[in-house]
Design a protein around this nucleic acid. Sequence first.
RNA 1: GGUACCUUGGAUGAGUGGCUUAGUCAGUGGUCUGCAAAACCAUGUACGGCGGUUCGAAUCCGCCAGGUACCU
Length: 299
Amino acid sequence: MNNLVVLIGPTAVGKTETSFAIAKKFGCPIISADSRQMYKGMEIGTAMPNKEELARYKHYFVGQLSPGDYYSAARYEEEVLAVLEKEFPHHPTMLMSGGSMMYIDSVCKGIDDIPTVDEETRALVLAKYEQEGLEQLAAELRLLDPDYYNEADIKNPKRVMHALEICYMTGQTYSSFRKRQEKQRPFNIIKVGLQREREELYDRINRRVDMMIEQGLIDEVKKFAHLKQHNSLNTVGYKEIFKYLDGEWTLDFAIEKIKQNTRIYSRKQVTWYRKDTEVTWFHPDNVEEILRHISASLK
RNA sequence: GGUACCUUGGAUGAGUGGCUUAGUCAGUGGUCUGCAAAACCAUGUACGGCGGUUCGAAUCCGCCAGGUACCU
C-alpha cells in the first residue's frame, strides 16, 4: 500500500529539518503544506528551504505562485492528490510537511465540492458588505440559507460573505454543498506531530525572527510594497514591516510585533491539532525515534 | 523651597458620588470546509497609601509617597 507521512507542528518547531531526515531515509520528494511558502520571493519571511536544500530534496508547492494568484485549500487538495498519483508508483512512501492546518486537513480528510466563486460575485458581495454592513448580510443569509445561518459564525464576515457568495452564484443554499463528509483516501496516512515546550518554542521563534532581519527581511518585504493589499502578503513578518516602511511603526516595534504575532500563530496551530487524535507527537530532537515510528507504521 | 497638575488591572486609556460593566492591546482558552500566517469568539472587578466627609467614594476633603511642568 502507499503511504503518506504527514509532518505537522507549530511554526519554528523544526519541521523543515525533520522533513529532510524523513525524505532522506525514504528517498521521497517533499510536499510542502505551507500556504505562504507557495509564493515566489517570500524566502526569508516564510523560512523557505534554501536553494541548496531545494536542489537536494525535490519539493512541491514551494515558490510557484505570484502574490495576486487566487488559491484555496480545495485547490490544494486537488493538486496534491494529482502529485501523489504521479509519484506513488516511484515512491510508495511520500511526505507532506507544513503548518497550514486547513490545507493538511483538506488532503487528509477531504473538502466538500463547493463551486469556486467567480470574480463578479466576490466583488458584489464585498461591496455589499462594505456598504451595508455585516448585519445586513447576515439578515440576508438567514432568509437564503436558514440552516447555515443557525450554525454559522455569524459575526465572522468571511464566513457570512462566502456563504452568501455561494447562494448568489448557484441559486442554491450554501448548506446544500457543505456536507462535511470525510473522504476515504486510497493510501495510508501517518500523522507525525512535532512539539516543544512553549518556552522553548517561543525562544526559537524570537531567535528566528532576529535571524530573518539579519538575512535581509526588510529588503525582501520592500519588493512587495506595491502588492501589500493582497492576502498573500497579509502575512506575519510582512504586514509588520509594511507598517515600519510606512513610518507607522519603528523598526524595533515592528520586530517585536513579528515575534508576538508568530507566537500567536504558533498557538493557533497547536490549538487546531490538539483535538486530532490521529497524531503521534515527538520532540524534534528524537529523529531516530520518529523514523522508527514511521517505519513501523508503514503499510 | 514654592506653585500647578497627575497617580486606574501586564500595557494603554475613558470615566465620575450609587445604575453588574469603559474600550483597546497583550496574556490565556477556543472556533474553523475556499485567499486560513486569514477571519472570528470567550475570558480580567483595577482605581498609589492612610485618614476623613457621606446611607454610599475610584470619584469630594486632608495628610503622606511617587511622578511631571513651571517658578525662586
